[in-house]
Each structure stands twice: as structure tokens, then as C-alpha cells.
Amino acid sequence: MLTKVHTGLEPVAGTWWHPAHKAEKVWVGIAFAWCLVLFAMMPLWHWKGGQNPSGIRTRVDPRAFYARTTEFVKQYKVGDDKGFPIVQPPAGADVYLTAMTYQWYPILQLQRNVTYRLHLSALDFNHGFSLYPLNVNFQIIPGYDYALEVTPTAAGDFRIICNEFCGIGHHTMVGRVIVLDESGNKVSDRNDVTLRVGGTP
């Protein structure tokens, strides 16, 4: 029943559709079972897990999105830092963040364990939303509104790094997100530092 011994360089004469050896059968079976586990994990995480890139996804005119962001800033502005408005929306609010060369507008001030709907979009080019130091990454594309339900589970002073090439000043594009604790206070500097240099697993 075995095919004549040959290497992959030789043409195969006759029928080669023969049953595989037990070892191959078992390995293919194990590999297939593992593939099913890999596949099942994703729907399972949508059902039971807390981190999914689903969101509500709509098309939007980039300028309209920027205008909506400006309106949001006017509504909830609480301060300034380095020329950027600091905006503190109420619990459950729609939060708008516009990426543009080379800045994240505005600075967000959120509260721990409060849920918001964070709208991400860009005014000009593709940008990359990378929340530091947690390492949460989303692609931002002009013309598309990516609205994600987010609940900050840690307080501290966070950064947004742009991790999609957007032009020659790409590497200067850093934004800021402040997360207050439940009582609305900033966490102490000490915790802040711990989070910022050692927070990433």
C-alpha cells in the first residue's frame, strides 16, 4: 500500500492517494482540535471578555467630526495644559477625540470605573491611537467614526502615542488622558510614576 520511497523532487507515478500513517493522522487531528480552540476563543471573548475592538462604526465627514469635537470641548472644558483644552465629560457621555497632524485634540479627563463612549476619528491622514502605558491600540482613519465603550479601570496620567506614520512630524504626536479616582481626585505623584514606568506587563 505504501508509495515507493521518493523525495519531493521526483515525479510520482501511479496513485498516491493512500491512507496516512497513524502518527500523521494523530498530529493532523491534534492540530485541527487546536485550530478549533483558537477559533472559539474569539467569539467566547466577545461574550465573556472585557476587551473587544467592536464599537459602533460609522462613516463621518472629517470636518463635521472635528466640528463636533470643538463643540464637545466648549461644553465640558475645565482647564488648559500647554495650549490644549482639558475636557471632563460626565459619566456616560459621548467623548470626542480628533487626531490630526501632529496632535491629539483635546486632553481628556475621565474618572475611574465610569463608562464613556469614546469617538475616535482623524481630520487628515491615518493615525494610530496607542494608549500608554497600557498599550491599547486602535487604527484611526479619516472619514470613519470608531465609537468604543471604554471604562478606565486604573487612575493616572496617560499618554496617547501616534503609532501610524502620518508625516514627517509623526514622532512628535503625543496626547494626554487623565484618569481621576472615584472621588474625583488626581492620584498621587507616586502612584502616577509607578503606573507610568512599570504599568505595562
Binding site: Q51, N52, T153, A154
Partner: peptide, 12 residues
């Protein structure tokens, strides 16, 4: 890697 994911903020 799944384990690392659980320490993030809740997002969905």
C-alpha cells in the same frame, strides 16, 4: 497573551 489582555481598561 489573553491573560495580559485582562489588565487593560474595559473596552468594547
Amino acid at each position: 497573551n489573553w491573560k495580559l489582555l485582562t489588565v487593560l481598561w474595559k473596552v468594547g
